[in-house]
């Protein structure tokens, strides 16, 4: 990890309220460094990423053994996204729960909470994209063939879906990590909030599956994008209240 220079370090500490206090340049730099830190940590502790991928593959395999085959597109679609939902909750859950208390405090003396949440959301988004792609490939191989007729629409759905999932789940993970039973709470808090997102994602991917005219789906893509904006803004605004003790 590149060293944060002494004078910058001082700037971060001396700004009492980061809301509006930091310049965009410093913020971007912080985000870049924090993202770098996340990738660095991930590459050093490969077992946690491998664990999530294995979780995903095992779940798909269990589904394959239970269902044998899924001839109906609606069931294929629903099952895929339910598997992705559980994998995402697990993957994002660790983003704050995993961090130790001491590291938490240390991080906040170095960077503004806004930079931290943006970096975490971006990182989780990339993680979820990766999981979706791996999940999709394994799912297609195990459950016999790719029934999707409109691949670009499906990909757009996956990208936008990962963004929304990441915004909601990162914030929920931040909340859950401060409580005594974080793993149960992670699921309990996220599932009802994720539903509007999940319903929209399901709808678009069903349209992609059936190869409907893309014009029908633009409305839903727009809904999905606006949900992402709403969740993104909420995470950005509310996160500073979550980290202080």
């Amino acid at each position: 990890m590149p060293k944060i220079r002494e004078e910058e370090n001082l700037i971060f500490v001396s700004v009492p309220s980061p809301l509006g206090g930091l310049s965009t340049r410093i913020m971007l730099k912080e985000i870049r460094l924090l993202l770098y830190k996340e990738f660095m940590l991930e590459s050093r502790q490969k077992q946690s990423l491998n664990g999530i991928i294995l979780y995903l593959v095992s779940t798909i395999f269990v589904c394959k053994m239970s269902f044998r085959s899924l001839p109906q597109p609606a069931a294929w679609n629903a099952l895929f996204w339910i598997i992705m939902l559980f994998a995402s909750v697990n993957a994002a859950g660790k983003s704050f729960i995993q961090d130790s208390r001491a590291r938490f405090v240390y991080m906040y003396t170095l960077a503004s909470p806004q930079a931290i949440i943006i970096a975490k959301v971006l990182y989780n988004m990339l993680l979820m994209l990766l999981l979706s792609i791996i999940g999709f490939v394994v799912y297609v191989i195990l459950l016999g063939g790719n029934p999707i007729q409109n691949m670009p629409l499906f990909l757009a759905d996956v990208v936008l879906g990962s963004m929304g999932f990441s915004c909601v789940l990162t914030t929920m993970s931040a909340i859950a990590s401060r409580t005594s039973n974080s793993f149960t709470l992670m699921a309990v808090l996220s599932f009802p909030i994720l539903l509007p997102l999940l319903m929209t994602v399901l709808k678009i991917s069903k349209n992609a599956l059936d190869g409907l005219d893309p014009a029908i789906s633009y409305k839903y893509l727009l809904i999905l994008a606006s949900i992402n904006v709403i969740t993104g803004v909420l995470s950005y605004l509310l996160f500073p209240y979550l980290w202080k003790d």
């Binding site: 914030t171 909340i175 909420l234 209240y241 979550l242």
Partner: peptide, 8 residues
């Protein structure tokens, strides 16, 4: 925490 959750 609960205020943040309830707003979200």
């Amino acid at each position: 925490l609960s205020a943040v959750y309830s707003i979200f």
